[in-house]
Amino acid sequence: MNAELSTEAPGRTAPAIEIRNLSRRFGGNDALSDVSLTIPRGVVFGLVGTNGAGKTTLIRHVMGLLRAQSGSVAVFGLDPVSNPTAVLSRVGYLSELNELPEWMRVDELIRFTRPFYPNWDDSYARKLQEMFELDPRKRIHQLSKGQRARVGLVLALSYRAELLILDEPSSGLDPLVRRDILRAVIETIVHEGRTVLFSSHLLDEVERVADQVAIIHGGRILRHDALDALKSSYHRLVLHFDHAVTSPPATEGFFNWQGGDRHWSAYFHGAADEAARVTSQLDARLVDSTTPSLNEIFLALVGSRPSPEARA
């Protein structure tokens, strides 16, 4: 057994994840640009972004599977690259790829994985197996994609990891498996002090379970806040201008204008009363103001920005 595993886990007070000014380039492309994030213990953190936004690259840095080119990453106060065993023994990980050894049987895979984790809970593993209706005699290559995801989930949860990292876990899966994954996240939250980092582009799922959300696009964090605070800081406005306008006014706080002539809609970032005040200065009347969903905020934020390729 590695010495690192037997010593008391360091950094009892450190945040679950602390990322400072992290940048990463692959060839000529910026995969991550000056990313800073702090994820405190005991929260469910949703990382949302389009395909290629940098979610998996960020998670691979957190797992110690990529070395920071600049900036730093700490998990429970430890560098995951130089302390892989100390960090990974406290992290449960389920990735979109879910590259389990195809030739093993489910029970063999569980028995293989168990010695790596001192906190492995056999009874919990059995309970999860029964809950997910997994046949222990079946080989991994005989399982459907959804069943493989469930096996991955059993492996990630059975040692009651302090930090559960789910990288696009429900991508391409049916609603039943997605439900199981969400149930697992909720189960993890129930255990006090445990943290979940949940990356997805299925925003309704994130909205259901996340306490905090970060929106990542083109390798940059566009917004990072508590979910409620994030949602309440955005407003979807319908405006009626006094006279026809050909292009919407470039006013601070407004973005993602749509419409024409005198009827326009836009998103506003700021307080609700501030939206009304600024609208009146634009020679326009505020017809309607609603709180958008996370999905709408995401589409408005990302849709109003050029893609990284276009910027290049």
Binding site: N2, M63, L88, S89, Y93, S95, L100
Partner: peptide, 14 residues
């Protein structure tokens, strides 16, 4: 290395 094995808490020389 597969993502499953890479995430195991095992040193490179092991």
């Amino acid at each position: 290395i597969t993502s499953f094995l890479a995430a195991l808490p095992l040193r490179a020389d092991d």
